[in-house]
Design a protein around this nucleic acid. Structure first.
Length: 440
RNA sequence: CGGAGCAUGGCGCAGUCUGGUAGCGCACCUCGUUUGGGACGAGGGGGUCGCAGGUUCAAAUCCUGCUGCUCCGACCA
């Protein structure tokens, strides 16, 4: 992408409403624009990151055996009356009427709808296990939206729903998601720690929140320090291996870890002092097993091998990709701007032409840009006629992992500078070397 | 929902107390000089001062009502 053809409204000054780093940087980097309290438009740069995150989420959901679909944002109130949650959910639910005065709502979650879909088609235990997910916008009319995307009212959520004949099957489904989540967050460069959590309005009795540690986190969390070193399952993990998955989950739940609501100060105090870790955390995922809470009232039943119909055991599993954009920035930034992990970066490399309009640098940049694009490397070519200082500052701000700096001095020796945003390291190399490095 | 505050050009702000026809920095446009870490000079464009009433010869400024947004607390992907 040529910057001259892109839409990247970078702000030099920080809008006054932004208090935390991720919000500030997203506004300054031209990633998002606030349209109302807790409601944001994703500008092109922000959308690129959001899509990268969704793709990782998708790949790991698919790998674990879940199947993607897409449910609507608007739901009928009748469904929610069936489960009893229409009255329970409270003011967080945005209620609307259509032209026929029918009660509708903007979905805050989809347990009811997925249960309705399931019961319409599935009759037999032979169709199970089943796990369906979608990535869709949700609306929760928060009392107090804040911190930009971190606590918005409209937010993107990946929500998966599992269906099993019995507790044993549901536990395995839970474990699949548990492991998929470990891998998902690790691929984004995040260490997420599963913590025993409250189930809230979703209900149920088994639940973990996946928390990343960050000083600007909203919740106080307590955990064993060794969680920082537990191994994340690799790509080859067998999601059908019931005992194997259970072992991984046991390993990841064996040590103490709890959010403040579930915190037991007595147990925590018995940990060796150097292993006690209390910090602020950002919740980036939440998984629940809630058994037959919805299947019973909504009559989602399947026939077992004995021919007897019984309500299915369900779980639901959420990840907030839009919140993850903010969470990743909280974890990866410095005074100059964002430092994207490569897996979610909006572009992999930026080419900076230090003397736009000079035949030598222009030609060298065009060659590099063309070669990189041809090899499928996501490249942003800063081809605007600005002073070098402005270019460096802008690219540092938006946090592209690699910068190739093309200037007359380097070119005199046939070299360009390859700079790494993450650690600021830089070296002089030939353009051919740049291409080789970024395509290896 | 309790408490506090803000609303003036795209962004950040001054002007409001003490009423007199809107200003600064950045950004933007033109020309020139510049170009290895947010340049400089000259010229220029852009604002019914959040909305609606009221007081007054005159309102960004005073009064009343409304709306939007932010922050602190109680709640949550």
């Amino acid at each position: 992408m040529r910057l001259s053809r892109f839409f990247l409204p970078i702000l030099r000054e920080t809008p006054k409403e932004a208090e935390i780093a991720s919000h500030r940087l997203m506004l300054r980097a031209g990633m998002i624009r606030q349209e109302a309290a807790g409601i944001y438009a994703f500008l092109p740069l922000g959308l690129r990151v959001l899509q990268k995150i969704c793709q990782i989420v998708r790949e790991e959901q698919d790998r674990s055996g879940a199947i993607e679909m897409l449910m609507p944002t608007i739901q009928s109130a009748d469904l929610w009356r069936e489960s009893g949650r229409y009255d329970d959910y409270g003011k967080e639910m945005l209620r609307i009427k259509d032209r026929h005065e029918r009660d509708m709502l903007y979905g805050p979650t989809n347990e009811e709808m997925i249960t309705e879909i399931f019961r319409a088609y599935v009759r037999s235990y032979k169709d199970l296990p089943l796990n369906l997910y979608h990535i869709q916008w949700k609306f929760r009319d928060e009392v107090r939206p804040r911190f930009g995307l971190m606590r918005g009212r409209e937010f993107l959520m990946k929500d998966a729903y599992s269906f099993d004949v019995d507790l044993a099957g549901a536990t395995h489904a839970y474990n699949r998601m548990f492991v998929a989540y470990l891998r998902t967050f690790a691929r984004m460069g995040l260490r997420a720690i599963p913590m025993v959590a409250d189930t809230g309005p979703i209900g149920g009795n088994l639940s973990h929140e996946f928390i990343i540690l960050a000083s600007t986190g909203e919740s106080e969390v307590y955990c064993h320090r060794d969680y920082l070193d537990v191994e994340v399952p690799g790509e080859g993990v067998d999601f059908d291996d019931v005992a194997g998955l259970q072992k991984i989950v046991d390993q990841w739940t064996g040590l103490y870890a709890a959010t403040s609501e579930k915190h037991d100060a007595g147990v925590f105090a018995k940990l060796p002092p150097d292993k006690q870790m209390s910090a602020r955390g950002i919740e980036v995922g939440h998984i629940f097993y809630f058994g037959t809470k919805y299947s019973e009232p909504m009559k989602a039943v399947v026939a077992g091998p004995d021919g007897v119909e019984r309500p299915v055991h369900m779980g639901s599993y959420g990840i907030g990709p839009s919140r993850l954009v903010a969470a990743i920035i909280e974890a990866f930034h410095d005074d100059a701007g964002i430092k994207w992990p490569e897996a979610v970066a909006p572009f992999r490399v930026a080419v900076l032409n230090l003397k736009q309009g000079s035949p030598d640098t222009d030609a060298a940049c065009e060659r590099l840009y063309g070669a990189l694009m041809q090899k499928g490397v996501d490249t942003l070519y800063h081809d605007l006629d600005e002073r070098p200082g402005s270019k460096f500052a802008a690219m540092d701000l938006i946090g592209i992992p690699w910068q190739v700096v093309v200037g007359p001095k380097g070119l005199a020796e046939g070299k360009v500078e390859l700079k790494r945003r993450l650690d600021g390291s830089r070296e002089l190399v030939t353009p051919e070397e740049v291409i080789a490095r970024l395509t290896s």
